[in-house]
Each structure stands twice: as C-alpha cells, then as structure tokens.
Write a protein that binds this DNA or RNA. Structure first.
Lengths: 138, 138
DNA sequence: CGGAATCCATTCGGATACTG
DNA sequence: CAGTATCCGAATGGATTCCG
C-alpha cells in the first residue's frame, strides 16, 4: 500500500488547497476521540472477536480500570464497540467491534503495520541528533 | 501471575493471537507521539509541500503557537518533518515532510478518508441513544 | 466479575507577553 | 515573521476503595 517510491508529490498546485476546512473540524473531533492513549489499542486488541472486561485488561498491559471503563464507554457512545452483559453468576460482559468499529480497525491495522515496519527507523531518528536543514540559502 | 480462577481458557484454541506484546509497547509510544491532538493534522496539512510557520497556523484553525511549535519540535525529533530556516529578512522557515513522514501521511490520508466517509454515521450514533445489548441470554 | 467513585499527580494546552 | 517564556485552568490518567 505504501508506495513511497519516488516523490511524485506535485509542487502545490494551489497555495493552500489542502484539506477542505469543512472536514477539518470533524477530523479533529474524531482524532480527539480516537487519538487518545488507549482507544486505538482497544480497537486493535478487539480484532479477533469479543473480549471480556478482564481479558481486555490482560491484553493491554498498563491500562487502569478507570481508563479501560472510560475509553470503552466512549467507544460505545461513538458506536464503535458494543457491550453485551450476560445475567449470569459470575457476571460476564463482552465487548465487540461494530461494523463501524471494524472499519476503523483496518486503519489501525495499517498504522500498526507501518509502525512495525519503521520502528527502528524512528528509534534511530530519536537517538541521533538530526542536524538536517538542507543547505538553506538566503 | 494471577490466573483466571477456575475459568479454563480452553476456548482459546487459536483466535487469540492478537498483538505480539513485543510490538505493543512500541505501538503505544508511537501512538503517544502521533495520536495527540495536532500531530496528524500537521502531517495532513503538509501533504502539498513545504509550509511556513504562519501558513501552518492559518491552515489549522484553533492551534496556538505553543502547540504548533511544540508539536513541530516533536515531529522533527521523530524525523517526520524537516525544518529549514532561510537567513533572510524577514525570516522565513519552512517545514516539510521527510520520506518517513510521508509514509505516515498515507495512513493519515486513509484515516481522513474513513472519517469523511462515515462522519454522518458516527454523528448519528452520538445523537441517538444506542440501546444496544442485543438480547443476551444466559 | 465488572464496574463506579473518589483522590490526586502529571500533563495538555490556551492566553498573553516578550524577543531576535 | 518566527518563535520563546510564563502563568494557569482543564483534562488526562493512575491508585485505591467500595459496591452490585
């Protein structure tokens, strides 16, 4: 998918066409929801099917109940995951991706793929002091 | 190791591959960088070529100088954008995507595409009280 | 087991003012 | 123009405790 082969980016046909300011606002809203510390991780972990609350905790090391519950509620409110409670004892609750959530999941998958593909490259950049700035002229 | 009390994981015959915990940590790190309020937006806006500081401010309504500078520094540190200063008067500084940053940009593009494609669907979910939980039985 | 509630530290992020 | 610096409120997010 990523054909970063060659810079075929045209030289800005217009001064500032870029993104329709109409979408910009909504992109920000979605990013605000999904771009937090845990949402994408939960979506990613949910890929193989429904998971119970405690399973989610196990699969995502470092998350607290507060954040797990909170993020789950948000995702549920956005229609990305469903919550199904079984009136048993002991109680069992399962979370699963909605079709909409599965759509987002694909994006997340690609992000993960990209990270896995370039993680050493990024790490290299962080370590080495990048003295870039290619020959600026006055 | 606190194992699940009694509940045997027999059902996990294979589907629970999920994510290699090896990658999980790094995914979180990248998500922490890139998944903030502005990074992706900057990467998105930079798609058509280099932009100057004030142009970025104009293209991204609502961002403050503090956050623009801060995020730019982060992206630069991660090797996703380059900063080129021209010793002119008045001073001119241009920011552009690196090849690595362009790779991320493709992911962002897909996210934006997905948002544009489903934004009314998401909005509908937020408005309507989703009384989900499809008839759970014990 | 699956949460809700409270407490608290850290961070995010905007407004403003000042500099080269 | 392109930042830097400081102040401060708001939000994030972890630890702990308690409840159905």
């Amino acid at each position: 998918m990523q054909d970063s082969t060659g810079t075929e980016m045209a030289a800005a046909t217009g001064p500032c066409a870029s993104i329709p300011a109409d979408h910009m606002a909504f992109i920000r809203q979605v990013l605000d929801r999904v771009g937090d510390k845990w949402s994408m991780l939960i979506v990613a972990v949910l890929q193989d099917g429904p998971l119970r609350y405690t399973d989610l905790q196990r699969q995502i090391p470092g998350i607290s109940q507060r954040m797990l519950t909170h993020t789950l509620h948000q995702l549920q409110g956005d229609g990305l995951v469903t919550r199904t409670a079984y009136a048993e004892v002991p109680p069992r609750v399962e979370y699963a991706l909605t079709p909409l959530g599965r759509g987002l999941h694909e994006i997340v998958l690609q992000l993960i793929g990209w990270v896995a593909d370039h993680h050493d490259e990024i790490r290299a950049n962080r370590s080495g002091t990048n003295a870039a700035a290619s020959s600026p002229r006055s």
